[in-house]
Each structure stands twice: as C-alpha cells, then as structure tokens.
Nucleic acid binder design. Sequence first.
DNA 1: TGACATGCATAGAATTTATATGTATAATCC
DNA 2: GGATTATACATATAAATTCTATGCATGTCA
Lengths: 114, 114
Amino acid sequence: MSILSKDLVAASATPLVLSILKQGDSYGYAIIQQVRELSDGEMEWADGMLYPILHRLEKQKLIQSYWGKAENGRKRKYYRLRVAGTNELSRLRENWQRVHAMLKKIEGVQPCST
Amino acid sequence: MSILSKDLVAASATPLVLSILKQGDSYGYAIIQQVRELSDGEMEWADGMLYPILHRLEKQKLIQSYWGKAENGRKRKYYRLRVAGTNELSRLRENWQRVHAMLKKIEGVQPCST
DNA sequence: TGACATGCATAGAATTTATATGTATAATCC
DNA sequence: GGATTATACATATAAATTCTATGCATGTCA
C-alpha cells in the first residue's frame, strides 16, 4: 500500500470517503481513482478494501446507495452522503485535527490557525 | 479509548511515542501520562497497549531500553530514541503531513504553510 | 479472439488488538 | 497493622479486524 502505513491509511479512509462523497455522488471504482489522484499516487486502495467500507458506511446510515448507469449503459452503484454522514464527517475531521494538533504541539512547531 | 477512533489512535501511536522520546528519555508509565496531558485527557492509553509498542520499537532498533531508578529507589525501564528512530520519526511525520494535506485539499480549505 | 479496463462482491486466511490477568513495590489512609 | 491506591512492567489469549485472493460480469480496443 505504497509508502503510507496501514494504520495511517486505515485512519484516513473513512474521512476520505465521506469527503469525496460530500463533493458529489460517486461510486467505488471512481473513488479509488480519486484517492489515487488526490494523493499523487501515494495511496493506492485495493477494491477489496473499499467495498467493505462502503457497505459498512451504508449500514451505519451515513451514506445511501442507488444503482445508476454509466454513459455506455453499464450499471454502477452510486453512493450519496446522508445528513448523518455529513455530521459524522465533521466529527471525524475534528478528531483528526485534535490528533494533528497533538503531534504539532510535541513537534514544537507553532500551530497553524486554520 | 475516549472519543478518538481506534484507527486514529493506532495511526498516531508510533509517532507520538517517538516524539515523546525525542524530547528526552522516558518510561512506560510516564509516557502514558504525557499522552493524556498532551491530549487534554482525550487520549487514554492502556498500559497493555503501550508496552507491546515499546517492545516492537526496540526490536526494530528505533529505541533502546535500559534499567534506571526512580528517586525512591524503584526500578524503571527507560527508553532512549536511537538515530534510526529519529529518522523513522521524520518519515512518519512526513507521511502524516501528506495525508493531512489530502484531507485539507478535499476539504477545500487553504492549506497552511507550516 | 484475447487482453485490458471497468465495476461490484465476499469468503476465509492471516494479522492485529484489546483486555484481563499477573507480578511487585511504594505511598497513603484509616 | 491492614487496606487501598498509585506506580511500574509484562504477556497470553480471546476477539476483532483486515488483507488478499478469487469470483463474476461487461465494454473496449487492437
């Protein structure tokens, strides 16, 4: 999984998926590509890793799936972010920010105001 | 484990331990307290979680242990950051920063220059 | 026709992790 | 003195998670 540790990938996976869906409905294959692009190729998700996450998020009612069609007629399973998912994303971002602040604090660097 | 997800705790554990040791030698019990303080009580490590991490880091030659004594004469196992550990910490911080940048990018917020 | 990209899904092996438990000593409180 | 709490390290094992391989199916392109 590239140079990024398993733990780091695991910790960021859910916020990433929810963030991507916040920008608009998407589907598994496209999400994997978006993550690759977003990371400049440093994060390569296996599909066998993403689908269980999507299913889990759907079961948690954070996202909602529906079948759609690609331009060529092939079917795709799209996911839409639900309100609960938006809220959860905020929580996850806060938590990430907290840990980030911890690491910065002990690194001895001036914390960034954003 | 407080409000922070397991994954987030796992992803930050190694950089935190190495960062703490970078500020000076320390030992298990104290590290747990330092993490609690650093997080304002939001991250509570169980000792049964930390010791295996310390042992792993020692086996990886990133840190080195030695027995010392507390003021009252009780023995303590201290850990010192080795050069390889300093290098690894840099790598981990870079990787963390990369993922942080990804999350910020997709959040649509101006990245902070620090 | 064969190869490759797109696209979804899951079983089960393999790994990881949490928790309970064990040991021991010092300090504190009643 | 006796009980309790804080300090301090350690690990076995039950429980949970996760990775990987595999399967299926269709469209495109050479």
